[in-house]
Design a protein around this nucleic acid. Structure first.
Lengths: 194, 194
DNA sequence: TTACTTTATTCACATAGGTGAACGAAAGCC
DNA sequence: GGCTTTCGTTCACCTATGTGAATAAAGTAA
């Protein structure tokens, strides 16, 4: 189940890292473990790290003016997660990031991130590809939100990630789909009748 | 009104390009002009370029299973636009890109793009920052779509881009907001009563 | 100018998803 | 083991937005 950062980088670069590159990079990472319900990032504080999930799950969410939470992203093994705007611009975060189970993480601080970009040429490319993939996904998510109703989005989601409901509570899946838990219940009820 | 690519790059890099860098880069670009309603990218064909808008406006949109169009993005002067997934993976595009008025563009092909990444070190960084900003924006757009209703999204949009309705027809603004033209009409009517 | 097409408005009615409450089941805790 | 909190379901009712049609206004072409 554990995901290694070396494989993650090599897979995106479609190229192996040399031992020196990997060791140089490893020195810049800070391992940490957080418990279920602990927050890694809290809105109104600056998000000072990028996080790579080795094992476990996190979610990033936004608390709106009515105090409701909206899950923007899940971070499973092998994902990178952060409040990127807060990280790059040193402003207070708009998202919270919280563990959904005990999670082991590798964190890279902004100064170490910049060191990596400058000292390890491949790293700038790696990070470009990482963000590029994330951006493509988010464009498609916006597109699907426009063209599909909640039932279709739910079906597409569990098709793409069949174990999702085993790993995270249903009300967070509803939130990620942009609907209320009751509505997801209703949708599942309708589907089971078909 | 015209936007220059040199300024666009330097602004993102927060650093000036040398004359050599700029000239090397310029050689990789293909200028073109397209007329209103012409398509730059068509779904089901591969998108072979990244496009920088010098002057004019484009929009990218998706045609759904009911034949309805959903505007995903507007590309004004100074914006880059493409079907990035199609471009990077050489698969057929899911989005269309069409001019909303006569538009002048600089296009960079995939092979030239790769040449730029490899030959001009700053370019990899520039492109990383470009995508990073786009990704941050799209994350915030997803978040706002979850927490705000159409009226709030409309108000936020015209506040952020007050000339939008002068440049593009209202039904495209509605589409971008994820609602029907009639609904935007109704929202505007309610607002004018307040 | 006239004619034709595209865009915006308004209305009556339909529907997906939201709301708040009640209830039971499951999970964590002492 | 029982107690308490969290989670999922169901229901009756509500609301924002969609639908389809009619009409007007604006834009374009001849």
């Amino acid at each position: 189940m554990k995901s290694t950062i070396k494989e993650n980088i090599e897979e995106k670069l479609k190229q192996e890292l040399t031992i020196e590159e990997y060791e140089k990079f490893t020195l810049l990472l800070e391992p940490l473990t957080i418990q279920k319900k602990q927050q890694l990032v809290t809105e109104d504080r600056v998000c000072k790290y990028l996080y790579f999930v080795e094992e476990g799950v996190l979610h990033s969410f936004l608390t709106d003016d009515n105090g409701e939470n909206h899950t923007i992203q899940f971070g499973f093994e092998g994902h990178w997660i952060s409040d990127l705007y807060s990280f790059v611009s040193n402003t207070t975060a708009t998202f919270n990031i919280e563990a959904l189970e005990e999670t082991t993480i590798l964190a890279i601080s902004k100064s170490n991130f910049e060191k990596a970009l400058n000292d390890i040429p491949k790293f700038e490319r790696f990070f470009r590809i990482l963000i590029q993939n994330a951006y493509i996904q988010s464009q498609h998510r916006i597109a699907k939100n426009y063209s599909d109703d909640a039932e279709h989005r739910y079906l597409a989601l569990i098709k793409q990630q069949p174990d999702l409901l085993q790993r995270v509570p249903q009300y967070l899946v509803a939130s990620y789909l942009g609907i209320k838990p009751q509505s997801l219940s209703r949708i599942r009820q309708n589907l089971s009748k078909k």
